[in-house]
Amino acid sequence: MAPERTNEQWISDLSDDGAARDAAIQYLITWLERRLFFYLRERSDLARVNADELHQMAADFAQDSVLIIIEKYAQFAGRSKFTTWAAKIAVHQALGEMRRARWRDLSLDELTQNGSFEPRFLSSDQRSPETEAIQKQVMAIVMDVMQRDLSERQRLALYSRLVLGVPIAILAEQMQTNTNALYKLIHDGRKRLKERLLEKGISPEEVLSTFR
């Protein structure tokens, strides 16, 4: 096997307009494909997918990723090895596609169709009567703060992330925003919620300890 390229060689090979570029691209595709296959094979949710199909998935992901890498390699900041950076792009691409496939039927309209959206957080997990009472009280306050102090979009976003487990990129698409803005929206919502609870003398850490 040829010695590993340095970061500078990667950039210069990919900037080449001839054989060096083709060789670099081919190396990258193979390198990513083999590693992605290894990763997919270990994923429990893909345990029933046979090896041929996993190979095909890995090949598709590697191809798609390399297109993105070719487009973006000028942005490579050199903080890591080039291959680590490339693998990061590939992992993001592969997991993003798998999440899109898994969540493709998600419709937030169903959640909001009755006009206003009211999240339900109450747990069915009951302990002793005292802790149950504390938890009920806390939940009532949480629900109240959510209704009063959070916007409808914040409630919807928090609920979708926390309760439904909707991935942030999928939710951003559905809410017609980007992941950065959505993260900030949810973060602001969490901060507001925490602030209001603390004002009422409720520390999330302390209430958490009543669950144990």
Binding site: E53, M57, L122, S123, Q135, L162, V163, K194, P204, L208
Partner: peptide, 26 residues
Amino acid sequence: LLSRQGNPPPSQPNLIQKLLRMLALT
């Protein structure tokens, strides 16, 4: 070739805990 698994049900236990843990980390 990914199989569709649908949305997980919203009625998971320990949601308050999840929310509180999130707030504690905020």
